[in-house]
Nucleic acid binder design. Structure first.
Length: 498
RNA sequence: GUGGCUAUAGUGUAGCGGUAACACAAGACUCUGUGGAAGUCUUAUCACGGGUUCAACCCCCGUUAGCCACCCCA
């Protein structure tokens, strides 16, 4: 301890005034030296200024514990996507900056201030993709995919980058699983995307509610927007400060506000659904009819607004369904009870902390054209994989466990180790999943590991067995051991694992 | 980008202005041929950098990171 102190503060000012103090410090040090425990004896203080690696802000390591869930989710999604006729596509992480300016929209936060952008060595202004859709549309146009039978259905997944202030469920490197259907304006397409999602959340057992709305086409949205502004401008006084600001920047966002006073006004505000032009109206009605026909449970949310510029008509989001927050019994007075409720609150905090959408999307009928392609109506959506995985953990869903080995191969001694290395390969080729720790010498340590892995059988190979050309098969449950010929090992294993 | 709360072994938590504790996990040994038992040991510059103090993990300031709300989005 004291040693550390000396190293840590080498530059103690040697001013005269401090000298006396220093002396008394020494006395103290000596006084406490006797009390030093042996723990500190061979402790070497770390050198100052030593580099210690650190993950970048908003980035995340996904460790084996969690990759299991990731692989599970991605596998399920891939299977499901393929069964719905989606084909996998992969586009680059880097794209031209202009691509996102022209699609996602200059006014959107994503483009305005959240892009990882830089100039590459060739002087091009490039960005790391903040979302998938523009890249896929670019590819669709550039590769002439409008010559293929339409509509064309894609899925993809991978990392996206947004320079945001990180929070739970909000990372700078985020992962999405994304779907696009290009080349059809039919409402049945919208409906099927939602149907797909319901199927997906069902296979996971995730409780989710589906919210849906229509934003109409640019022309009906424009007239609605001014109508809405007129409505709120008249009642500006009663709006919360946030909403007063929103009134200028993004009036549609007011509809989202949770402030009770604002909500009061919002319920009486004009609704976009009532203001749709006849085409948009009939499109939306048809989507809902299809959904009803297919028994999809959804919630019509006239206040659902999406921030990306390119959305038209149908939009939808998937929100995790959490249990209702219990009303705290205010009669509980004692300290004990208070403590308990506090603990409960801590535990349930994650359950009730404001959840974020697990996925969302909608129709973007004009995007392809605005990026220079032909008029190609399209729709798509994405899941936030990071959020889905968090939600799986919160809702405590059982995820398929990765197959753990049923056999463990233990060895004692150099010769046996050499033989085991080969035997492991033979067994693996036969399709057995075998655990091993060839790096360990002690049999005890290997047995411990076998136990931890929960294997059924352990093979033990030692000096004696090598000489006799045999091997021990130990049944980990009963503890019975049997010595068999090495040649018959595969047969024996098959028999026992039946 | 704005405001608030937090920071102690790998994880989860104690702690007090004066020796940094506990549980689990991990590793080593007791024990160079046998797991689910026991014991011993190891695993913390108390996030980083300053300041106040005889003395700071504790108080103050700054930085960084995480969380919460806003904003936005998946």
């Amino acid at each position: 301890m004291m040693k550390k102190k000396q190293k840590r503060k080498p530059k103690i000012k040697l001013q005269k005034t401090k000298k006396i103090l220093k002396k008394s410090k020494e006395i103290k040090k000596n006084k406490f030296k006797k009390l030093k425990t042996k723990k500190q004896k061979n402790k070497e203080p770390r050198k100052k200024g030593k580099y210690s690696p650190k993950i970048l802000r908003g980035m995340k390591d996904i460790l084996p514990e969690e990759t299991k869930i990731w692989d599970f989710v991605c596998k399920r999604l891939t299977e499901l996507a393929e069964s719905y006729g989606f084909q996998k596509i992969e586009t680059p992480v880097l794209e031209e900056r202009a691509l996102f300016e022209k699609s996602t929209g200059l006014s959107s936060d994503i483009v305005e201030k959240q892009m990882y952008q830089f100039t590459d060595r060739g002087g091009n202004s490039v960005v790391m993709r903040p979302e998938f859709t523009p890249g896929i549309v670019r590819s669709y146009i550039e590769q002439g995919m409008f010559n293929l039978p339409q509509p064309i259905k894609f899925f993809c997944f991978g990392p996206l980058f947004r320079y945001e202030r990180p929070q739970a469920g909000r990372l700078r490197q985020l992962h999405q699983f994304n779907f696009e259907v290009l080349g059809s304006a039919k409402p049945v397409v919208d409906a099927q995307l939602i149907l797909f999602s319901q199927a997906f959340f069902n296979t996971l057992g995730l409780k989710v509610n589906i919210q849906i709305n229509s934003l109409g086409c640019p022309s009906c949205r424009k007239s609605y927007r001014s109508k809405l502004m007129n409505y709120f401008r008249a009642k500006q006084k009663w709006l919360c400060p946030d909403c007063q600001r929103r009134l200028k920047t993004n009036p549609l966002r007011i509809l989202d506000c949770q402030n009770p006073d604002c909500r009061e006004l919002i319920t009486r505000a004009p609704q976009l659904v009532d203001d749709l032009c006849s085409e948009c109206q009939s499109h939306f009605v048809k989507v809902l009819e299809y959904l009803d026909e297919a028994n999809v449970i959804y919630k019509l949310n006239p206040y659902l607004v999406r921030g990306l510029d390119y959305y038209t008509r149908t939009v939808f989001e998937f929100w995790p369904e959490r249990p209702e927050k219990p009303i705290n019994d205010s009669l509980l007075q004692g300290e004990e009870e208070k403590k308990i409720t506090n603990e409960l609150q801590e535990k349930e905090k994650e359950l009730f902390s404001s959840p974020s959408a697990l996925g969302g999307g909608g129709r973007y009928d004009n995007l392809v054209e605005s990026l220079g392609g032909r008029l190609t109506p399209a729709a798509g959506f994405a899941y936030g994989l990071d959020r889905i995985i968090e939600e799986i953990k919160i809702q405590d869903l059982k995820v398929l466990k990765s197959k753990s080995p049923q056999i463990f191969l233990a060895q004692i001694g150099e010769v046996a180790c050499r033989r085991a290395l080969k035997l492991f390969e033979d067994l693996r080729k036969q399709g057995f999943k075998v655990g091993e720790n060839l790096a360990k010498d002690s049999l005890k340590a290997q047995m411990e590991m076998a136990n931890k892995l929960g294997v059924k059988l352990t093979l033990i190979l030692g000096q004696q067995e090598i000489l006799d050309k045999t091997i021990i098969i130990r049944d980990m449950h009963s503890g019975n051991q049997e010595i068999v010929d090495q040649e018959k090992i595969i047969k024996e294993l098959k028999k026992r694992l039946k």
